[in-house]
Write a protein that binds this DNA or RNA. Structure first.
Lengths: 204, 204
DNA sequence: TTTATCCTGTGATAATAGTCACATAATTAA
DNA sequence: TTAATTATGTGACTATTATCACAGGATAAA
């Protein structure tokens, strides 16, 4: 028995994953998919490799096929994490991408990463061809907005411990894959504090 | 000299404001503007009147022409503010509007409010007619996402005092128009704490 | 394997923020 | 105008979190 595992087959799988993701968001014809192709490039990143660097303009959307990445600000040499992006999510700086302003944060691969990069200019070309691509874009941004709103609300409504419990309930994968110190930064608490909160919870 | 101040003139002014706002976001032809009309209704709200109620599905976008409103969660009878929306902003629950899920929060007029309501179904009809309306929608959501991201980042990067200073620098209008106790909730601190932070700052 | 690096846990202490109580000021309604 | 309501300031005290220091464990690289 021969199992095909060459690059071509891998690429096909990755592209299939993306199409499946897209179709989970909106109806998407074969024609739209063909029109979208010129905007797409498969790309791999090594662990710790930057997808986006602070000070640069973000001209890409990154569909995460495998691995995960995070966004972070560098504040006086300390990394403050603001988001984690796993499989079947889009990572980007939506503000920089949309407005052309410089990005205030970095995006870095936390594991070896397989992504499909959407080129902004080519995507906008494709967008003009069909409503489906435009609708896709709108839905992607809406999901992004919803998530941001969700996390910003977390801080207004809940204590650090409640925020942790929320993530445990709603994003268990994040807890599994992200280290305590990385998560602490995202939750806006010191790692020591998160360690103690976790201990309190396992005792109680 | 006769100054025309009847309803018709008022409506025209409000509509003109909206068109100006739209054209600040994207190019928008007279044709698109005409196509959009069926989706629009001018509406006024009294102070404390609800634009959106928790548990209802949000089927509207509210362009704020005059006055301001806020979004808040009711947690055990206590109002926790999550957003303020002033003139030339769009207030809505983007998640509920986009997904059809019930809203988890309320939106209420904090002053007598003049708004233009976008009806969802009619807006979607209009969206199919021209790319410009779809692009407008995408830009509105992007602005919304950017703002949510900005505020959620605030909590991860800054202390309560730094968050206040950020608002003072970037959204001075909010400080002017929103009372201390309302703002405290938005900043995720007790009103007493915000009062003391403010005192510390005026002394220093 | 061995070293180096990173991650986690924990004590001690300081800083920050929350809660309760109450006085006063400001605003709104009668 | 007066009364009622709402908003703010502040003291006292408690709770939570940050910071520093250091030890031990896990992981990765040589």
């Amino acid at each position: 028995m021969v199992i095909v595992t060459d690059d071509t087959a891998d690429n096909k799988q990755t592209m299939d994953n993306l199409l499946k993701y897209i179709r989970s968001l909106t109806s998407f014809s074969e024609t739209s998919w063909e029109l979208l192709q010129p905007a797409l490039t498969k790309k791999t990143f090594k662990k710790k490799e930057l997808l986006l660097e602070q000070g640069q303009v973000c001209n890409s959307l990154f569909y995460i096929d495998n691995g995960y990445c995070k966004s972070y600000y560098d504040i006086d040499g300390v990394q403050k994490n603001t988001g984690f992006f796993f499989e079947n999510e889009i990572a980007t700086n939506i503000n920089s991408f949309g407005s052309g302003q410089k990005s205030g944060f970095n995006i870095v691969a936390c594991e070896p990463l397989i992504a499909i990069v959407f080129d902004k200019d080519k995507l906008f070309q494709a967008t003009k061809q069909t409503h489906e691509i435009e609708t896709l874009g709108r839905n992607c941004i809406r999901l992004f907005a919803t998530k941001q709103e969700e996390f910003s609300t977390l801080f207004k409504l809940y204590s650090a411990q409640e925020r942790l419990e929320y993530l445990e309930a709603k994003y268990p994968e994040m807890l599994q894959r992200v280290s305590l110190s990385q998560l602490a930064s995202f939750l806006g608490v010191a790692r020591e504090t998160l360690s103690r909160i976790r201990k309190r919870r396992t005792l109680a």
